[in-house]
Structure formats: structure tokens, C-alpha cells
């Protein structure tokens, strides 16, 4: 997987490059908007990570230029801008996800993984599944090992999100964003309670737990412990 990182801050770029390389990705780095746009148009990448504020050509302009050329590569925007509506502006410009600095690296890694995965399964699905867990999006039913599991509407959406990101780490902010469409952190960790309730329903009474808590990062649907 090749990722192009367009980021002018040297320290941030070095740290992200190192972290992502350790995560198994190939990283190209451009420290300026025009160079970044040139690289993105002349070579193939699976994902772009673009800082919003860049010398030369700003991040949003780079994305707009790419989209105008019909380039559909997934783009993750990094921003230090404080305005909440900047997120909307970033996504409107053609970004696929938006992260505000400061962010946790685990969060960035999880979102990178999610974006790369999304690029592969663009076709609409009616069934989702992981291990012996199955979800029918049309009848809105969930079974595990052919045993029917009753879920509240919100629990259904939570599990749907986890299933769409099965095997990946899903952070609390990703869940708040994807399931509740909230982009703020509640004072108390309300997501933990939702997860533990869902875990009660899908894991209790089964030999292998599927829903795992990843310390300091989030949650993941996994077969191994």
C-alpha cells in the first residue's frame, strides 16, 4: 500500500513516516503543495494524507485540483484549524476524512486503515459477516452461529460499523463520528458502555469473544485474543 504524505512540518512528517512504515505502508513525502500535487498526478497512490495549511498551494486546493482531474484516490485531511465548520469545508473540497491536530497516532492509523479498506469494497452490500457472526442489512437481523441476536436500532448500527471495519482498530471518535455523527468528545466515555452492552449480546455464551478492547486505541472485531 503506497501512501503520499503532503506535510510541511518536518517533525510531524518524520514521525508519521516512521509510524506508518512500521505499520507496513510505503510512504512518499512532499513538503510543499505543488510538489505534492505533481507526485499525486504522476504516480499511483492508494491514499493521500494532506495537511491543510501548506506553503505554495494549500491542502484544499491540492485536493480540488485532483478531484477536478477525476482522481478518486482516498484523501485524509490533517488540520490544525480550530473552526468546527472547517471539517465540512474540507469534506466538501473532496476529502474523505478529516482529523484535527492534536490527534493520537492510533487514531490516524485506524482511519488510514478504514480509508484503504473502503477503497476496495465500494459495491453496496446487503450482508455483512465476521467469523460466525452474520448481519442481514435488508431484514435487519443478526445471528451468531445461527442463533438469533436481538439488537436495539443503535446497537445494530454500532455492530454494522464494526463489521464494516472488521479486523481493524476502530477508535471511540470514529464510532462517535460514524454512528452518532458527533465530532466532539463527550466528557464521560459513553461509548464504552455501548460497547459492553453490545458485547453482552454478541459474545456472551460463545466460546470465542469477537469484540475486543484495544488498550489506548479503541475496539476491534477479532477472532484471536
Amino acid at each position: 500500500m503506497r501512501i503520499l504524505l503532503i506535510e510541511d512540518d518536518r517533525d510531524t512528517a518524520a514521525y508519521l513516516t516512521k509510524g506508518l512504515r512500521e505499520g507496513g505502508y510505503t510512504i512518499e513525502h512532499a513538503s510543499e503543495g505543488r510538489d505534492g500535487l505533481f507526485l499525486a498526478t504522476s504516480e499511483d497512490f492508494d491514499l493521500l494524507i494532506v495537511d491543510r495549511m501548506l506553503p505554495g498551494l494549500n491542502g484544499l486546493a491540492v485536493i480540488e485540483a485532483l478531484r477536478a482531474q477525476g482522481n478518486k484516490v482516498p484523501v485524509l485531511i490533517l488540520s490544525a484549524l480550530a473552526q468546527i465548520d472547517d471539517r465540512v469545508r474540507g469534506l466538501r473540497a473532496g476529502g474523505d476524512d478529516y482529523m484535527t491536530k492534536p490527534y493520537a497516532f492510533s487514531e490516524l492509523l485506524a482511519r488510514v486503515e478504514a480509508l484503504l479498506r473502503r477503497g476496495h469494497s465500494a459495491a453496496p452490500t446487503t450482508k455483512l459477516g465476521f467469523a460466525d457472526l452474520e448481519m442481514d442489512l435488508l431484514t435487519r437481523t443478526v445471528t451468531r452461529a445461527d442463533r438469533r441476536i436481538d439488537l436495539q436500532p443503535r446497537e445494530f448500527r454500532l455492530l454494522e460499523y464494526l463489521l464494516r471495519h472488521a479486523g481493524q482498530v476502530v477508535t471511540r471518535t470514529m464510532l462517535l463520528d460514524g454512528v452518532w455523527d458527533y465530532h466532539f468528545d463527550p466528557q464521560t466515555n459513553v461509548i464504552d458502555v455501548h460497547i459492553s452492552r453490545l458485547r453482552q449480546k454478541i459474545d456472551k455464551g460463545f466460546a470465542t469473544p469477537l469484540l475486543h478492547t484495544i488498550r489506548g486505541a479503541g475496539y476491534s472485531l477479532r477472532e484471536d485474543a
Binding site: 480550530a82 468546527i84 484535527t100 490527534y103 466532539f184 468528545d185 466528557q187
Partner: peptide, 8 residues
């Protein structure tokens, strides 16, 4: 992180 976000 949480404090900064809320302040923003």
C-alpha cells in the same frame, strides 16, 4: 486533548 477540543 479532550480539554483542548472542548476549548476550541
Amino acid at each position: 486533548h479532550h480539554t483542548v477540543n472542548t476549548l476550541l
